[in-house]
């Protein structure tokens, strides 16, 4: 493990990865290494490491090994479920997971945020046959344990925050929009995960502004081509949403 400054240099890779994508990946590693609201930096690195172990298990590759901190057993199980057994993730399973020792709804959401973003950066590398970037060194510090006061039940399993219930500390997470999609709000119990989502969403797919625009995005694949790929990936994962 090492620091992030010199990471994600794609100069020697076979494909022309944009610098803005590399920058987003570096920001992802910075986010990963820092203490969160509910997990330390070392625990967040361990979540990422477990995500890689789960992926290696599914792919029949050697175990890359655990991270620097021990995780609750329920967290380890959840990470493997989210990577390798997604169609069988259920509401009952979610309830059991957040009730287990060392877990809570907020800890689950922050853990999910780490898993999906590390997984996404790694999937980008796998799709292009680029070696996975080493995980960063954790940044010392304690979790702040601040729960957004505007979080309420709105139909998702975890509580979420509607745009009108945002407070100053998380006022930016929906980009000032008065309405938001459920998938964007899904991790709002941990606002930094929504910020992370927005950053990588723009780098890999489209910005939220482009999503709402009638214009063709300034990307090389056309919008129908992008959405066809998106729909195929969703179908392969049997994702109803």
């Amino acid at each position: 493990m090492t620091s992030t400054a010199a990471m994600f240099s794609y100069a020697d890779t076979a494909w022309p990865v944009l610098e803005r994508t590399a920058e987003a990946h570096r920001r992802s590693w910075d986010m990963l290494a820092a203490p969160g609201e509910w997990w330390t930096g070392a625990e967040r690195i361990s979540i990422a490491a477990e995500c890689r172990r789960a992926s290696a298990l599914v792919d029949g590759l050697p175990d890359p090994g655990p991270g620097p901190a021990e995780l609750p057993e329920a967290a380890v199980f959840a990470i493997h479920k989210l990577i390798g057994d997604l169609p069988n993730v259920t509401h009952d399973w979610y309830d059991e997971t957040i009730s287990a020792e060392g877990m809570s709804d907020a800890r689950y959401i922050e853990m999910l945020g780490v898993v999906v973003h590390i997984w996404s950066v790694d999937e980008f590398h796998r799709a292009l046959d680029i070696d996975l970037e080493p995980l960063p060194d954790p940044i010392p510090g304690e979790p702040t344990q601040v729960r957004p006061s505007g979080a309420r039940a709105h139909g998702s399993w975890p509580q979420t925050i509607l745009p009108e219930d945002l407070h100053e500390s998380e006022a930016d997470i929906y980009g000032g929009m008065e309405r938001t999609s459920n998938v964007r709000a899904a991790m709002s119990l941990h606002p930094d995960s929504v910020r992370w989502l927005t950053d990588l969403f723009d780098a890999h797919y489209l910005s939220w502004i482009e999503i709402q625009s009638e214009q063709e995005p300034f990307r090389v694949l056309t919008r129908p081509q992008r959405e066809l790929v998106a729909a195929r990936v969703s179908a392969l994962n049997e994702c109803f949403y």
Binding site: H117, Y205, V229, N237, C239
Partner: peptide, 16 residues
């Protein structure tokens, strides 16, 4: 990038 993005989005949707 689109593949990587939706490998993530489906896990957010189904994980929540």
């Amino acid at each position: 990038g689109v593949v990587a993005n939706f490998q993530r989005m489906v896990r957010i949707a189904d994980g929540c």
